[in-house]
Design a binder for these strands. Structure first.
Lengths: 225, 225
DNA sequence: TAGATTGTTAATCGATTAACAATC
DNA sequence: TAGATTGTTAATCGATTAACAATC
């Protein structure tokens, strides 16, 4: 029974784990569309711009298996991934910062697909407190501990301006928060047992810039030959 | 001279390139703070939760070198990374979708640090057209081709609801856009020569869920011994 | 049955870590 | 000078790709 319990979180290659998240998103989408019941590794590969061999290799770590010439059962695969990511075990999260970004997050409908729910949104600005964001009323920061206790909140999204991010993080750590979802570009300094997930969007744009530069370069070289 | 030109975009290990973006963000922050002129590989490593050896290995691909016992000159390192990422070559980008997320993006101040500028924001909703988002007036979709031509826009951020994302992508591809910065969770189907950068935020939350589950598991196991 | 696709093993490739000489 | 830190080479580790048998 112990070994059972321990096995619940399997050890995948880190790279595989990252792709499993992509498969999960794709399969969720396909499941909603209801257009097909099976999917080939080839089709998945094409949509995610990877190779079919890679897809099959990744799936070989799962219990679900595919049928030659038929592919993988979408519902079955999705169910296993849901289980794997603990989608059914709902996580209550809160948002600090009720600006545009915080509001966008609060209104985001996709959280239910990954077993998360936004239970409250906070702002230090008295002007914003009391206003509605979607179905939530903006609360003052002092209410954070109460909400955290009541809803067993472990994860907090920080959506405040750069210069307030560290301060808010310190506060949350003091309140016993386990994980910070950091939407500021500020590198946060927190104790080692607090999980920080940086969601610095500028990284994506840097990748685009780089890829654009590379394709320009290729064009230049080809025209030269 | 050809070889000069070709060398402008150096070949780094992919993993190193990803970390270079983190170093860039960190150094940008330190440069703004003006608290120190030099930084040790050890200090960088601690802030980014990697090893100092990794940092030095990554930097060995750069021209900038550090001084034993002194570290790396922050300005010098940042200047090289700026050059490397083409920060000085400004990129004009546009945003489609003037909801909370699009508005957050339009108001984001950090773009200048990575050589990007939002020149326009669009929405299909007539109610939103004409309203101000920061310093930009929301424009109707039909104005996209004009703006793209006038500002040489290559990159577009898609901030529309899930079910409109593919449609907008098709439109943009037809207008000759080179790169799509996709903020919807929808997997987009576009021609191979169009760059797509997916900014699916739910992935970060899945990582958090997984890390929380792992640390719970560790706690459980330790208490059992 | 023939052909297509899966799943797995082995080979290759790439990234990280370890070790240590060079240098301030 | 002694000690700390950098930078590089070699060793290890991990991930991807190739090859191919199994199977529908």
């Amino acid at each position: 029974m112990k070994s059972e319990k321990s096995k619940e979180i399997l050890k995948f290659p880190k790279a595989t784990f990252e792709r499993l998240k992509q498969y999960h998103a794709l399969l969720t989408q396909l499941e909603i569309e209801q257009k097909q019941r099976y999917i080939l590794s080839e089709e998945i590969a094409e949509m995610l711009k990877i190779t079919p061999e890679q897809v099959r290799k990744d799936f070989s770590y799962l219990k679900t298996s595919g049928k030659p010439k038929v592919g993988y059962n979408i519902s079955e695969l999705l169910a296993e991934l849901d289980e794997l990511f603990g989608i059914k075990a709902n996580d209550n999260i809160i948002i600090v910062g009720a600006g545009n970004l915080g509001s966008a997050l609060a209104n985001y409908k996709g959280f239910q697909n990954i077993g998360a729910r936004v239970v409250a949104i906070f702002d230090k600005d008295q002007e914003k407190v009391g206003k509605m964001v979607g179905e939530l009323m903006v609360l003052p920061l002092k209410d954070i501990p109460r909400v955290v206790r009541r809803f067993h909140v472990r994860t907090v999204a920080i959506c405040v301006p750069e210069d307030a991010a560290q301060q808010v993080a310190d506060l949350l750590v003091a309140y016993g928060i386990k994980a910070i979802w950091n939407f500021s570009t500020r590198i946060l300094d927190v104790p080692n047992d607090v999980i920080v997930q940086n969601e610095d969007i500028t990284r994506g744009l840097l990748s685009i810039k780089h890829m654009l530069a590379e394709s320009e370069k290729r064009k230049y070289e080809n025209s030269e030959v």
